[in-house]
């Protein structure tokens, strides 16, 4: 029961994260901003709308969002809850989580290509290229966690906290996961999620021709994915496994909210990188991950 509590929390609270980010951004620029629950309102509205599909599209346009959302839910099932291991876990399950996110991405890319729009094709091609570059960084970061972990599952690797000042390179892992959060969820500095048009170059571009329930699934899936990474960052940082359950939950939720605030602060204070620079950002992250891994292995 306890194990499923985290899934429930994620399913219920995930749309709050975009709300927090937007609120922080608004406050930073001196505005009041949208309500914190705006994403819930949007989702409720979208599910009540009809479907508008492109003449060009085949079955993939509808299948894509559903598969994408289901796959993200799958990845969430592997993440441990603050007070107990994940409902499903086995040695090497981080690979399953990463590939589930890959499946979700492929489904959206194919749905984007299904509309035959050049703009969406552009977004799809960038998403494919950048996430291919982000994949090894994610694996390296997780491996650095795995080397010392009691078991090789996500439940064993996360929630240990940072093991002491003797191994300062461990500090990089949460940082790397945070960079990956920004990359995989197409936030600034990798992509600007603010508009559906010209400024945005990757993720939001891909979903232009989706409407109604499809769009709801995509927005909800994006929120869940954001929750996945925020939770991973928090769990890699906090020693929740050693805390009493209630304190662990409180620390965890506060941590996730803080990650959201951090994303908001970054979005208010930085500009989007030129697309050419994104691989360089990922390369630096990869070097840092490799450094962390090599030093962890060496110790």
């Amino acid at each position: 029961m306890n194990a499923w509590l985290h899934i429930l929390a994620a399913l219920v609270l995930a749309p709050l994260i975009p709300g927090i980010i937007n609120r922080v951004k608004a406050r930073m620029s001196g505005r009041v901003g949208k309500p914190l629950l705006q994403t819930y309102f949007d989702l409720a509205k979208l599910t009540r709308k009809g479907l508008v599909e492109s003449h060009t599209a085949s079955f993939m346009l509808g299948v894509g969002p559903a598969v994408s959302l289901a796959a993200v839910c799958g990845a969430l099932c592997l993440l441990p809850s603050p007070a107990s291991p994940a409902p499903a876990s086995f040695g090497g399950d981080f690979m399953l989580a990463a590939y589930c996110l890959g499946l979700s991405r492929l489904a959206l890319i194919l749905a984007a290509l299904d509309t035959g729009s050049s703009f969406e094709g552009m977004g799809a091609s960038r998403e494919a290229a950048f996430s291919a570059l982000a994949e090894p960084v994610l694996f390296l970061a997780l491996l650095a966690l795995a080397v010392d972990a009691p078991s090789l599952s996500l439940s064993g690797m996360l929630g240990q906290g940072l093991s002491g000042a003797l191994a300062p390179e461990r500090l990089f892992v949460p940082l790397l996961l945070f960079i990956l959060l920004l990359t995989e969820n197409c936030r600034i500095p990798v992509d600007d999620p603010n508009t559906h048009l010209e400024l945005t170059m990757i993720h939001e571009v891909m979903v232009l021709d989706h409407s109604g329930p499809d769009m709801a699934m995509i927005s909800y899936g994006a929120a869940l994915k954001l929750w996945f990474f925020a939770a991973a960052v928090t769990l890699s940082l906090l020693p929740v496994q050693a805390m009493p359950p209630l304190a662990a939950w409180a620390a965890f939720l506060a941590g996730v909210a803080l990650v959201a605030v951090a994303v908001g602060l970054i979005e208010s204070s930085m500009a989007r990188l030129r697309l050419l620079r994104v691989p360089r950002l990922l390369g630096s992250a990869g070097a840092l991950a490799a450094l962390s891994l090599v030093l962890t292995v060496w110790r």
């Binding site: 002491g164 000042a165 191994a167 300062p168 390179e169 450094l291």
Partner: peptide
Amino acid sequence: MAAIQSLLVALVVVNL
């Protein structure tokens, strides 16, 4: 000991 390790890791990062 902890301080020197942190310093050295920071130096390695600076090198990168």
